[in-house]
Simulated scan of single mutants.
Amino acid sequence: MNNIEQFKIVLASLLTQLPILLVSLVAVIMVVTRWNELPKASMWALLGFGLTLLLCIVIPVVQNSVQHWAIENRDLSHDQRASIFTGLSILWSVLRAVSYALLLAAVFAGRRAPQPALAAVDVPRHPNP
Rank of each mutant, 00 (worst) to 15 (best):
M1I: 13
N2F: 09
N3G: 05
N3L: 12
I4P: 00
E5G: 06
F7N: 11
F7S: 14
F7V: 12
K8G: 07
I9Y: 13
I9G: 01
I9Q: 15
I9K: 15
I9L: 15
V10G: 03
S13N: 15
L14G: 04
T16C: 09
T16L: 15
L18N: 04
I20C: 02
I20G: 06
L21V: 03
L21T: 08
L22I: 15
V23N: 03
V23E: 02
V23P: 00
L25V: 07
L25Y: 07
L25D: 01
V26I: 15
I29C: 07
M30S: 12
V31H: 04
V32I: 15
V32G: 02
T33W: 06
T33Q: 12
R34I: 07
L38Y: 10
L38I: 07
K40I: 09
K40W: 02
K40D: 13
A41V: 02
S42P: 01
M43T: 04
M43L: 14
L46C: 07
L47P: 00
L47G: 01
G48H: 03
G48I: 03
F49R: 03
F49M: 11
T52Q: 11
L53M: 07
L55E: 04
L55R: 02
L55A: 01
L55S: 01
C56V: 01
C56A: 13
I57T: 09
I57K: 01
V58W: 13
V58C: 03
V58F: 10
I59S: 04
N64P: 00
N64C: 13
S65N: 11
S65R: 06
Q67N: 14
H68F: 09
H68K: 10
H68I: 03
A70P: 01
A70T: 15
I71S: 05
I71E: 15
I71Y: 14
I71M: 13
I71H: 13
E72R: 06
E72C: 03
N73Q: 10
D75Y: 08
D75L: 04
D75E: 13
L76E: 05
L76F: 12
L76A: 06
S77V: 03
S77L: 08
S77T: 15
S77E: 06
H78I: 07
D79C: 01
R81C: 03
S83C: 00
T86F: 10
L88S: 04
S89T: 08
S89M: 04
I90E: 01
S93G: 14
V94Q: 00
L95F: 03
A97L: 14
S99Y: 01
Y100A: 10
Y100G: 01
A101T: 05
A101W: 06
A101I: 11
A105I: 00
A105G: 05
A105W: 05
A106L: 05
V107Y: 07
V107A: 09
F108R: 04
F108D: 02
F108L: 07
A109Y: 04
A109K: 03
R111E: 07
R111I: 08
R112P: 01
R112M: 08
P114F: 05
P114R: 11
Q115R: 12
Q115L: 11
Q115K: 13
P116D: 08
P116M: 09
A117L: 14
L118A: 15
A119R: 09
A119K: 10
D122N: 12
H126V: 13
N128Y: 06
P129I: 06
